[in-house]
Simulated assay, not measured.
Amino acid sequence: MGVLSELKLTVPWGHIAAKVWGSLQGPPVLCLHGWLDNANSFDKLIPLLPQTFYYVAMDFGGHGFSSHHHPGFTYHQHDFVNEVRRVAAALNWKRFSLLAHSFGGVVGGMFSCTFPEMVDKLILLDSTPFFLDSLEKENILTYKRYNIDHVMEMETKQHKPPKVVSPQEMLQSFLKNNIQVGEECGKLLLERGTTKVAEGLVLNRDRRLGLPGNNFEFITKEQLEYFCQKIQARVLMLKASQGFSYFRLLRKGENPRSMETVVNVLKSTLQERYKFVEVMGSHYVHMQEPHKVAGVISDFLESNEDLQSHL
């Protein structure tokens, strides 16, 4: 089943790009990609899911074919939550499901507790809905300072033309910085993440995006408990056995048990509305081996029955 269409949704700073699969009359599912990825993340998976649903995979601002944000401002996690709300408004969606990979799951988690009445189901692909940091009070000002300094540094380079490289050089550089992607999936992401020019390729993404740790929102355990209480959606967390686990590696000294705490709070708070499934595969299992996750996602979308706790 191929892509039905490409969308360009108008926003004050330009447009949000998206691609569409499935039935226009079906229940809506918004798909959120990972950090520095794009909507092509779902090209392998969505054709294996029930085509009775209406799937829209968006490019976050500064990613893929979407516009970059206004000059002079940083990117922050809440900006992407804002984008999800704007996409829902543009499509006139009152209630929908979220299918989210990696950083997209963090955006989806925050959206689900900020606009709980709008989210029916939240599906997390090797992701967590929140980043827990027990040292937040000591580090929050450092994060904010570094983010602003990084953006100002990037602005001094904005007048320089983007670096043009050959397709092969672009791919090798991409794979070096994304060790779990693999060549086939890397090529797929670069199809939407680059623009062809006469001499080769240039990256589409905004240079201000920088490292994910600059832009993510870390929360305390008390905030975690409160946010989870606000979620009305049913949540499916799909963990890859050899996943990247980047949420524990963003900075030195982060508590390695933080993910375990998030899972325990979700489980105790949501109870029968929370399901945890582990699959064999990498952080990009939904692209590399989509059949391993397609079945459980399809069951979750189509039914309210309990899922197995482990595959």
Rank of each mutant, 00 (worst) to 15 (best):
K187N: 03
K44C: 08
L190G: 05
F276R: 13
S134E: 13
L270S: 13
N177R: 14
G210H: 09
N82K: 11
V262F: 01
Y75V: 02
L7G: 04
T156D: 10
M118C: 13
E260H: 14
K187F: 02
L236H: 08
H291E: 11
K137V: 01
T156L: 14
P256W: 13
T194F: 06
C113P: 00
L301G: 00
G295R: 07
S173H: 10
F174M: 06
T114Y: 00
K275P: 00
H76I: 04
L189M: 14
W35E: 09
S309M: 04
L189C: 06
T52L: 04
E225I: 14
S298Y: 03
F131L: 15
L124D: 04
L132T: 04
C31S: 01
G109Y: 02
G281F: 05
T52H: 08
N147C: 14
M280Y: 13
F80I: 10
H310L: 15
D59S: 01
G200H: 02
Y284S: 10
E83L: 06
P162G: 10
I231L: 02
N147H: 15
N304M: 07
L188C: 11
F276Y: 12
F65T: 02
E136H: 12
A17I: 01
P50Q: 03
E289M: 11
V119E: 06
E169I: 11
V56N: 01
G186A: 04
G210M: 01
I123T: 09
C31E: 03
N264G: 05
H76T: 02
E191M: 12
N38Q: 11
L190Y: 03
Q242D: 10
D43L: 06
I123F: 06
E183W: 07
V107C: 04
L249W: 05
S166M: 02
Q25K: 12
L238E: 06
E183L: 14
K230P: 04
L9I: 01
V164L: 05
F216R: 13
M259E: 12
G62Q: 03
T156F: 12
W13A: 15
I148V: 14
V165W: 02
V202T: 09
I148D: 13
M58K: 11
Y284M: 03
P12F: 08
I16W: 08
G295K: 10
T52Q: 10
V262G: 03
E217V: 13
H68N: 09
C185T: 02
N38V: 12
K121E: 02
E169F: 05
P27Y: 07
S268E: 07
Q229T: 13
A233S: 11
L32R: 09
W93I: 01
V263N: 11
H78P: 02
S309G: 07
L45A: 06
V56Y: 03
Q242A: 08
